[in-house]
């Protein structure tokens, strides 16, 4: 397993004696997309600022690409980030002018690469226009372009979807997926729970400055549910199989997670050899929104009262 590109250990931050992040430990490895979700004021943005070196921790540790982003600014050479929503630029410069200025601060980025990321974010036609006339969505896309133009090892984006239309949102998700597939460690904060499931590896749920839960969506992706003739016998039969990491019953259905998705066909063989009838087999799509509300309700915080399934967040 590769070394974490982002690592926090017992991270603590307080402002004027008021804790805003408490005892927070998590890692993001190369190739992972880690999403921080939680209600407003949960501390997501503070975590992002602490990890990117903009704010100093009151306690605990932050490691970015193996270094301390506060003590050693050079580790930020491998960082691409957008920490303002909307993304911030000099309004009197064009989109391209802003990227050129940031490229000089980043230690130099080829003009061809700047053109490439502008095209990628569908800003090619608007690249010579002043940012002052850009829409909110265009500024956000320019922010993503600025963050990825130096091919970073770590990409940190605070609310990248803020103010974006569905097509722009889809574009950003694609960029994040592609960045991760090239080995970039991606950390984002977001409120878009449905989309998170489609491109994130892990989700950290924050509440009142505390990481109350962490969900590994990759494991959830290989989970299935089945209607069978005898649920208890099916659970017992699958629990002993080496390619099944977990099997349990839920609402009179069999639920199991495969450690090797290629072996899905063997499930029916195992059940059949044990005399168990298999009537229906479907992927157990993870409902992050429902899980999130349930987790909020369990945490008992302020948001628990507002956390009702089906309420848009």
């Amino acid at each position: 397993m590769p070394e974490p590109a982002i690592e926090t250990v017992n991270l603590f931050k307080q402002y004027r004696g008021r804790p805003v992040v408490r005892d927070l430990s998590f890692t993001v490895r190369p190739g992972e997309v880690y999403a921080l979700v939680g209600p407003n004021g949960a501390g997501k943005t503070t975590v992002i600022r602490l990890v990117s070196g903009l704010a100093y921790p009151s306690g605990g540790e932050v490691r970015l690409l193996g270094g301390d982003p506060h003590a050693d600014g050079s580790v930020r050479a491998g960082l691409g980030a957008m920490v303002e929503a909307p993304a911030a630029f000099y309004p009197y410069l064009s989109g391209r002018g802003n990227l050129q200025l940031q490229a000089r601060l980043a230690g130099g980025v080829a003009e061809e690469r700047i053109s490439e990321v502008l095209e990628l974010m569908e800003l090619g036609a608007a690249s010579e226009r002043k940012v002052a006339v850009y829409s909110l969505g265009m500024r956000q896309r320019l922010g993503v372009a600025a963050a990825i133009m130096n091919d970073p090892d770590v990409l940190i984006l605070d609310e990248p979807a803020s103010g974006m239309d569905p097509l722009s949102l889809h574009l950003v998700h694609r960029v994040l997926r592609e960045s991760a597939s090239r080995g970039t460690a991606v950390l984002i904060s977001t409120h878009h729970l449905e989309e998170v499931v489609s491109y994130c590896s892990r989700v950290g749920i924050m509440e009142a400055g505390v990481l109350i839960d962490e969900v590994d969506l990759r494991k959830r992706g290989s989970r299935y549910r089945a209607r069978v003739s005898d649920v208890h016998a099916a659970v017992a039969a699958l629990q002993v199989q080496p390619f099944v990491s977990e099997a349990f019953s839920r609402d009179k259905e069999l639920v199991f997670t495969l450690s090797d998705v290629e072996r899905l066909g063997y499930v029916s063989v195992v059940l059949g050899s044990n005399g168990i009838g298999l009537f229906e087999l479907t992927p157990d799509v993870f409902n992050l929104r429902a899980y999130y509300y349930e987790r909020m309700a369990r945490s008992g915080g302020r948001t628990a009262q507002a956390a009702q399934p089906g309420v848009p967040g």
Partner: peptide
Amino acid sequence: AFGTLRATLLRPVSR
């Protein structure tokens, strides 16, 4: 005011 302070400090330039 522009919000560019943070964007600048995220680059490998010492404060």
